[in-house]
Nucleic acid binder design. Structure first.
Lengths: 200, 200, 200, 200
DNA sequence: CATGAATGAGTTTTCATTCAT
DNA sequence: CATGAATGAAAACTCATTCAT
């Protein structure tokens, strides 16, 4: 199983193109091979099976996605600023590649539980990023102490993801990065100490 | 196409059971028929085809789900209280039927675009409920004026949905309704006037 | 098995209509029942099964067809005149009922060997008619002596049938009975003593 | 869609065998594949679908049939001699392959209108052959001037076809080519100038 | 006599994967 | 390394017929 080489990249990219264009259930291995300019059998020299290919697509693309975000977060910014960077990077990167956005937001979700579990593992790294921002914010005293990490993370990811999915489902018709500001504002409010206390 | 009768209900319920147990892609019509105690062909007396059955499952179950929520929201409560009711009803109803929660949160999302579009139509009514709460809150002056409806709605639905999905993926291991309070708190903060202003 | 009654006729006629309109393979029992204004099960009070119904359609309609021809041939006409009457009656009767012509010339031929064997039995009576004309003609001395009955009959029936089928396949676009004259002329020539002798 | 190769031939021949033996409606793709010694899926590498296979069977076999006839007719024979060749070739070729004769005379007629339309296109070439003989005969002055081409063609084809079909339905029990002479005689008589004039 | 809801057997086609070249 | 022809398992849907009412 060769894991690298020019054809490896070609196949990954071909898969993104084909899935974006024809949809997950119409993306047969032979169609991806043709798009990549290789024989069907060649796919199996680089990937164990179709599921492995799809997971690899997500790994490679989401890996780059996460790394870029990680790099931008290495600054000494405050937690609030970092959250802003996270949201902005998320929206900007999806905007930079419409096809990829279709694949990750819509098509790769039509997979079975097993495949999504593997996709979940990749996402773990991203969720960890969010967690570290939350931790920072609590240490800085700007986010509510003793908050439920998991819930906060779910609000952040859920909001960002829902916003991104709606944008894709609306055919990328509006400016997604422009929403980073308002979304960030809402999330910060939701997490901040200086906010409504329902126990008042 | 008979749309009522005891067998109609039986088939719908059998579909939920089978999908929850075996997963969407392993839920053959014959398996559902067997579970319902009818012949394969009988399914087609009540549903046009398999897709129609699946949409009907979502319609029937989600319809009841939304109606119950609507009824609870007919009170004269404040927008903040209504949002609390919405979150609580959402979590309570999912808790009341584990199988249904698996089907709606995990399995029915593995469907193709066409089926999901039809599912989206049903969800529209739920999103409208959220919108009306947001409108109330703005009129009451507790939610930020001129907020982006769509974004706010996406935060609310995204957060609730992500929280619910995580709960199902963690095998219902913890008390979901107990999270209604904190989730509600975060959402209200996110939307309220009395919160952090990043432009400060 | 009731063999008569108003519903028997209704069902037969409904079958002709449905087959003519939808084609043999799209003529389900339920469709015929609906057209006849009876319940599906009622068909089985009058006919043993679907094949029996189809054979009965052919029997009833072809029976009348043949009887009318037989009646016209009871005259003391010459064999040549009788052949003319036969061809003319054939074309006129098909022209009188377009739907029936579609059913007998096109649709009922799409049946399996078994059903066509039964249809063949009904046709036997018609072929006997032809044979008796041939016999007359030989006795009169106008048709070739010692001719091969079977071959002559096949030429007559084959020609008439092929002509009729072509007319139906051309959507009854031209005047079929007008062809009776020329067809008759050709057939008589083919059979007559006063014609080309290839052994010359 | 591979249109050639040894398996293409094998599948075509297997189809003829299976249809001749089991009948059109009992000739499942899997049965044909088994007879051809290939996997079911292999059929679909060579044919678009089952209908395409059946049309191809007719095309290939009837194509050869027609070509052989065309070749025999390239001589400088008279129209009458050519007609003799046509009839003889027709009967001889059917006699040379009993299975094929069953398929073309009985089984392939049980198809729906769509399939028969495609079969009709292939037959067109054969009917053109007949037409050209008729034209020759008229130019030679041996066939009636200003005759109705279509009618004459229908007599010739109808007679030959009916004769062949009867022979097959009688289980090939007699010598079909031996009938070429008498059939030819009848047809020539039917068409000739030196014959009975009913207007006498 | 009549109904019509229910039955369940039966077939085409797709496509991930293999392996001889 | 690369090819691509071949494999064969798997599933939705139809419709003639029955039988309880």
């Amino acid at each position: 199983m060769k894991r690298k080489g020019p054809k490896y990249e070609k196949i990954i990219d071909a898969a993104v193109n084909v899935i974006a264009e024809h949809g997950y259930h119409q993306s047969q291995v032979s169609k991806i091979a043709k798009e990549a300019g290789v024989a069907d059998g060649t796919i199996y020299l680089y990937f164990k099976n179709k599921e492995d290919l799809l997971v690899s697509v997500f790994n490679e693309k989401m890996g780059t996605f996460i790394e870029k975000t990680e790099n931008e977060l290495k600054s000494n910014d405050s937690a609030i600023q970092k959250l802003r960077i996270l949201v902005e990077m998320h929206f900007k990167q999806l905007t930079a590649d419409f096809e990829l956005s279709i694949v990750t937001q819509l098509e790769l979700r039509q997979t079975n539980r097993q495949l999504r579990a593997k996709i979940g593992e990749v996402l773990k790294r991203y969720l960890d990023l969010i967690d570290s921002i939350l931790k920072d914010g609590m240490q800085e005293g700007v986010f509510v102490k003793n908050m439920d990490y998991r819930l906060a993370r779910q609000m952040i990811f859920g909001t960002i993801d829902e916003t991104a999915t709606n944008w894709v489902m609306n055919d990328h018709r509006y400016d997604l990065p422009a929403l980073a500001g308002p979304v960030h504002q809402m999330l910060v409010n939701g997490l901040s100490v200086r906010s409504v206390n329902l126990d008042d």
